[in-house]
Amino acid sequence: MPRLRISVRARQNAWGFAFALPAVVLFGVFAVYPILRTFYLSVHRYSLVGTPEYVGAANFRFILTDPGFAQTLRNTGFYALGTYVPVLALALVMALALNTGVPFRNVFRVINFIPVVISWAIVAIVWKILFHHQGLINQALVQLGFERIPWLQSTSAAPWAVIIPSIWKELGFYTVIFLAGLQTIPRIFYEAARIDGAGTLQAFRFITLPLLRPILFFATIIAVIEGVKVFIPQFVMTGGGPSGATKVIAVSIYETAFAFGRMGRAAAMSVLLFAIVLILTLTQNLVYGRDRS
């Protein structure tokens, strides 16, 4: 009898393992292996032709002493903060506004979500024309008595020309996430607070924010990863220019690997990108963990 039970359990577990197998194989081959291989390539010199040649830390030394790469890191940070601080703040405001009894709130929610489903390739094409020297945005600026801004041709304006469409596109996603979080907060909490004489701001500070914290954490993690690994907006709107003003890490990896044929150097950049994401995620975890306890 006990032997039979063990074999039933073992058989169940074998099935359980079998169920995980497709995913494990796919992840093993197409994620874990390339990730490990990135570390391997990062200490080699390789141009897609021939065999990789071991070069030690040369690729890392090259990147870390490269002023261009330092600028790339700054650009990435600028984009991540410039896009996602406003996005998270505005999304929270939008979610609060839509969580009231305002009429048509479902229509507003749908409208705000439209940019989320449009592919970046299309978003970039439209905004490039909007940012054209004689385009709608510059026409509006002239009407308002300002000078035209060479959005995509100036090193100071181009970073914003990438950030503005990003905010437009990302806002709806985070609004919906925050709104879902707000809707999990029982109304009775607010009613109790009102009876205790708390104002709207106090209710927000002492009820909404603490209860929304898990969602805020989730959204910030997603936003940080999205911001640091950003590729498409820069690639399709500015190609990283002018003069490298919008060149972010992922664009630099792409260019170094595929236009310059420097696979090893690109892999070293990838390792750094991986490290940055890891550090940011761990830091957030730490901050969140401490707050909760």
């Binding site: 100036s154 220019g241 002018p242 003069s243 236009a259 044929g261």
Partner: peptide, 18 residues
């Protein structure tokens, strides 16, 4: 050539634009 040209472009853009 690609890598050289890219570096030259970045330099020329900083001269011509800034």
């Amino acid at each position: 050539a690609n890598e050289t040209n890219e570096a030259v472009r970045a330099a020329l853009e900083s001269i011509f634009l800034a």
